[in-house]
Nucleic acid binder design. Structure first.
Lengths: 198, 198
DNA sequence: GTCTATATAGCGATAGAC
DNA sequence: GTCTATCGCTATATAGAC
């Protein structure tokens, strides 16, 4: 098998396992078993476990950028795009109930480990923050855009954390509904203040 | 030193280290160094690491119950008590920026480990959920009480997660202010519907 | 490029002296 | 009740055959 393909398999298995079991709790043996190669073979592709983590985060960054670009390319307005972000909680509900949010839980774990990849992982949040901020800028103007982006990110994180702890999908539905209402309220408020926008 | 005192020292050190470094990442050597005893001495007080975790969670449950009882005994109304809960984010701001929420991060880690103590850890959330639900019942009636309690818990968790990821205390202040406003809105809404309450 | 075998270190846990 | 010494296991990482 070509080197790039095996490398990619390792990244995908590690990505999945880091999410499901946590970074530290996932061993080379776990990943090797998942990929179907031997432990020793890892070091032909990566020089350390931290190296695999870097590759996993880089992969997630790429995937997230692609997703946000696609959402940007679709023929939706900013409000509909933000609604699409909120819907992640529904689309990924099963995984979130089991493992929480991939971004939030990774950042949390790396913070406790004092791991050097913290900044890279945080960049995943920044990607969403910037993208949401851009949508809010067009929706309600630039003044409160970042504040609203962070607020929405925080609400999503909180829902994921409690949904994971209580395994409660009804709660997710309830909160998603409220988030959609909150978004409508923000749009209405902006339209009152600047009737020309939108 | 009497047995109970050493045991208590171990629990306190483990509690602190599990919070700061995570459960799995904290070794017996770490705890031993912190307490000032040898590794071998542990097993006179606990039969396993999971046993220490159980004791730590039990301790946190006791402390949390005591705190909520004290808040209940104070001469505040339900609104003021809920505001006191929100203020945890300010009071513990420094720790939250560094290590996140002690309850949320523990539940998250144990979920990834598939650890049997998950249910016990979740009980910490339930303690706040029930207490907040009780306050909301008196504030706006029983129908929406649990929903509001879960909503507030989720908002707090989200703030803690993002505050930890971005190390942003200004964001915490901002969100706490919004949470207080949200609470006032809930009270006002309830007073409109049931003018006799409060 | 993938394998087996192994080095090295740290972990949780145990045994037994004091 | 606390210690030292050590077991058994698993982890990351390396060396070298194929």
């Amino acid at each position: 098998m070509p080197k790039a393909a095996t490398r990619q398999h390792i990244i995908e298995a590690a990505d999945r396992l880091f999410y499901q079991q946590g970074f530290e709790h996932t061993s080379f043996a776990d990943i090797a078993e998942n990929v179907g190669i031997s432990r020793g073979n890892f070091y032909h592709h990566f020089k350390s476990k931290d190296d695999i983590l870097d590759a996993v985060i880089a992969q997630r960054l790429t995937n997230t950028r692609d997703m946000l670009d696609q959402w940007e390319a679709a023929e939706d307005g900013p409000e509909e795009r933000i609604r699409r972000f909120i819907q992640i909680l529904i689309v990924n509900q099963t995984k979130i109930l089991r493992y929480g949010c991939p971004v939030g839980t990774l950042c949390g774990e790396l913070a406790k480990l004092g791991h050097p990849a913290q900044a890279e992982a945080r960049e995943l949040f920044t990607l969403f923050r910037t993208w949401l901020g851009y949508q809010f800028t067009r929706l309600v103007g630039p003044d409160q855009a970042d504040e609203l982006a962070m607020h929405l990110l925080a609400r999503s994180q909180g829902v994921a954390t409690l949904a994971n702890a209580f395994h409660d999908e009804f709660f997710v539905d309830q909160e998603v509904k409220q988030l959609c209402e909150w978004l409508s309220t923000q749009v209405a408020k902006a339209n009152l203040e600047h009737p020309t926008v939108t």
